[in-house]
Design a protein around this nucleic acid. Structure first.
Ligand code: MN
Ligand code: MN
Ligand code: MN
Ligand code: MN
Lengths: 218, 218
DNA sequence: ATAAAAGTTTAGGGTTATCTAAAAAATTTT
DNA sequence: AAAATTTTTTAGATAACCCTAAACTTTTAT
């Protein structure tokens, strides 16, 4: 059984490790958790003692199989709650993250199973991120940043890489949403910005930075 | 801003004080919170410093206007979540309390307003308890224990006084629910138990203890 | 009216999660 | 290869919440 704080650290480590593929440094954890390195070292020892991570002094941590499973359950809860907030309570996609940060720590296996069923077993959250099933599995669709796309193929917006409220609000404002169809009309040499057509009816320019934060399939 | 623990203490004090009408003793709080009197004294000082309660050493605490308002918001959240769990996620009424104990501490005014709307502004929770509105007001219906009823009037079950899972499961088993109509067929002198008719079709005997924990209107 | 009992507070600690400052180790620069 | 810099760990504190044991106050019983 993990505490609220331990769950948050473990989730951060999971994300920073690229779903458990690489080691994570103390300073990276401190950065994302908004804490000091000394606090991270303390927590690392606790998570290590609980076999959630393996820890080599001065060389960062690796998440264990067990730690990954726990992290995935927190991610599952976070994304199911975000889906609930948008689909049932009509939150906008920029309002849900902070509330889900709290809701993801509610302890009740029954609750999360019933919520999943109520939402009809969604596979992605409002930001296009995959929702792990109760065994921790999820479908991984190969997605690439819009900035890496070329030509005039038909492109579908699948997910946002950065979920900050300001980016999400901006996307809503210009008419970009998960599932939208876009075509690249022109790539501006000067600054890497793109002129795109959204759903075949709206032309807009978006910055390179914005295009790097939109994940798409061609 | 109150902590998770402060909210729980304040809610307990509110309930123990009879909605703020009488003083509450340290020992009573310790009893319901499953803590020691010494811990209660510590918390009393904190809540007192935050003007949630007024405190006279050795003579217990009284909840302030502000404290009552805060407590009512926690009660509102608790009961709205219980209603959600039963009506939308199809929990049974004996499964919701522990989960609601966690959910009641989620901090988001928007969430609770949207949840209220989603549930179509319910006035009572699954146990028949009134749900305060966003200003803290709720309808108080005069209810009496079934054990205090006499004669063969038409009686409606309005609420349970004791919400323990075992009592609720027992009620479901014998067919008693909020809104059910009952009639008293006979009061057994020997032990105060009652023979009742539920919804005009099912006769059962219930103990005095059970009848004292059913609140009804005649 | 006193003594005993019951209830409450204070004193002194323990745990978790955080911090700053100092020490230690690794990495980068010269 | 040293020196300088960066990163990490350790040491020592603090705040919130809880505990036991002892001291103090109120209530009850004799
Ligand atoms: Mn999120
Ligand atoms: Mn998301
Ligand atoms: Mn309840
Ligand atoms: Mn209830």
């Amino acid at each position: 059984m993990l505490s609220y704080t331990e769950e948050n650290y473990l989730k951060a480590i999971y994300h920073l490790s690229g779903s458990g593929t690489k080691a994570v440094l103390t300073s990276e954890i401190a950065e994302t958790m908004n804490t000091r390195a000394a606090s991270v070292t303390d927590m690392i020892k606790k998570l290590s003692a609980k076999n959630m991570i393996s820890y080599e002094k001065y060389y960062g941590v690796k998440i264990t199989r067990q730690g990954k499973a726990e992290a995935l359950m927190v991610v599952r809860k976070h994304r199911l709650w975000e889906t609930f907030l948008v689909q049932k309570l009509h939150f906008s996609w920029d309002e849900v993250h902070d509330v889900a940060e709290q809701l993801e720590h509610i302890q009740s296996a029954l609750l999360i199973e019933k919520l999943d069923e109520f939402l009809e077993f969604p596979t992605v959250d409002p930001h296009g991120h995959p929702i792990p099933d109760k065994t921790g599995k999820f479908v991984e669709v190969r997605q690439i940043p819009l900035s890496d796309c070329s030509g005039k193929k038909k492109i579908t917006i699948r997910a946002v890489r950065n979920g900050s409220p300001s980016f999400l609000q901006y996307l809503s404002k210009i008419g970009v949403y998960i599932g939208a169809t876009v075509a690249i009309l022109e790539k501006i040499e000067f600054d890497g910005s793109l002129e795109i057509m959204i759903d075949g009816k709206k032309k807009v320019f978006i910055s390179r930075e914005a295009s790097q934060n939109l994940l798409v399939t061609e």
